[in-house]
Nucleic acid binder design. Structure first.
Lengths: 249, 249
DNA sequence: AGCCAACCTTATGTATACAAAAATTCAGGT
DNA sequence: ACCTGAATTTTTGTATACATAAGGTTGGCT
């Protein structure tokens, strides 16, 4: 994974651009989303600075922004760590997203442009194809793109920004709590149904389909009471593996 | 106003505490809320640093956090300025808050503790008293306290945090767009009605009373189309007054 | 052997110096 | 008189040095 970062950093510097805090935010967020940086991983400022070839100033700004996005936790005089949302917070995040994304979908059911509907239709198709050929990373990417499209085109931009945040947070906890044996969180009917309701302009049906979709998604997670699993992971599991790959750079 | 800050800074240092970024965030946010720092005001890092007696490092962190809270706008290589939300954003913020606070109130209608209900009842009473004696600052404080209480006690803490943010943002635009001749935004019936519905446990009635309350509040604002008012203010009105009081420190 | 304390390592908090980019000012020309 | 453009000033971006606090480790003591 460090090599991936190394490559992207090299590409960025070759392009004449300096590494910005934004770049670091994006890379760390992507790594957290794909669990290359598991919850609890320590993110010391100097180590990150060496990896990205910048000083602590830039890293600190990036970490502050990641903390505002709920990706890392930052406590005074302590190392920043990849956040491990609790089961309770996971449930609450899903509930918040149901509320917000449901409203956005309802707003969009009235006034979405044909262009938007076509873009969504394309992504829905691609997601199905990716699933059919067993390409789970591509499927996740297209699925996320659909929801991000809703957020970006929300008539209410304040709600849209909130939704962007919630999509990120739910993605993190989905990666975290996905039931062990489950190959994919694909729900074949849900996105086509949503699209149909957006097309027909039925706001309440669109809202309902979002609610059901997210409810089903949450149901695919392993949110059993034994929260110890995560605590142990945060305390013990962050050990040598993740730490080394960071300090190796 | 600088003298107020000076006093608070002196009190903080006397107490042995160093001025933290948190302190600066709180003070700037309060000043924006009370319009002592009008929209468009420039907030240069060195000037703020001199006022608070800290270096740019601390100020920068504070400004980054204020930007995350939508209080100031920060663009690369430009001075941070107090944000002036547009009329459109104001409407969208109110809509978002109606959605979120309505849900929180509905959740709270079922399961709020007697303690919480008593606290709210006390604040409702105090707000009415403050209004009766014409003490508008105190009235605003108690009114805000009621809504913050809902946010803090939200069974869904994710929604609660989102509501805290939205309360701040709506407070800013209320101060910004309050109709000129209006002495107060007090709506005598609304808070008591909300309290009654929280007590009775009727979730949908509680949600509805929040919706109506916020709709009425938005109706008290001057959101006419001529947005030029704000643009002019941001460009011209930020002149000597605010700038000087900052540089005078 | 177990526990405690002092030390040392590590990492963050803060200030400051220098570089680069904007904004402003002022002079020159049309 | 107005517009243009270079020089100056202001302000931010980044790196680095020093101070401080947290965490772990080793030594000594009971």
């Amino acid at each position: 994974m460090s090599t991936t970062w190394q490559d992207e950093i090299a590409a960025e510097t070759r392009a004449g651009r300096r590494i910005s805090d934004r770049f670091i935010v994006d890379k760390v967020r992507a790594a957290v989303l794909t669990q290359r940086l598991p919850p609890g991983t320590r993110l010391p400022e100097v180590a990150l600075g060496e990896i990205f070839g910048v000083s602590r100033s830039v890293v600190r700004k990036a970490l502050t922004r990641l903390a505002a996005d709920h990706v890392v936790s930052q406590q005074p005089n302590q190392v920043a760590r990849v956040r491990a949302p609790s089961i309770e917070e996971t449930r609450e995040t899903f509930a918040a997203r149901r509320l917000v994304e449901g409203e956005v979908a309802a707003l969009l059911a009235g006034g979405s442009t044909p262009t938007l509907l076509e873009e969504i239709a394309l992504l829905v198709e691609r997601e199905a194809e990716a699933h059919a050929r067993g390409d789970e990373p591509a499927r996740i990417e297209h699925s996320l793109a659909i929801h991000h499209l809703l957020a970006e085109h929300s008539p209410n931009r304040v709600l849209g920004a909130m939704l962007t945040d919630l999509i990120l947070r739910t993605s993190i906890v989905i990666a975290l709590y996905k039931r062990a044996g489950l190959a994919s969180c694909y729900l074949a009917e849900d996105h086509p149904a949503l699209l149909a309701h957006l097309r027909s302009g039925d706001a309440e049906a669109a809202r309902r389909s979002i609610h059901e979709h997210l409810q089903a998604l949450e149901g695919l997670l392993d949110l059993s009471i034994r929260e110890t699993r995560i605590d142990l992971m945060a305390i013990l599991g962050q050990g040598e593996g993740a730490r080394m790959s960071l300090s190796r750079g």
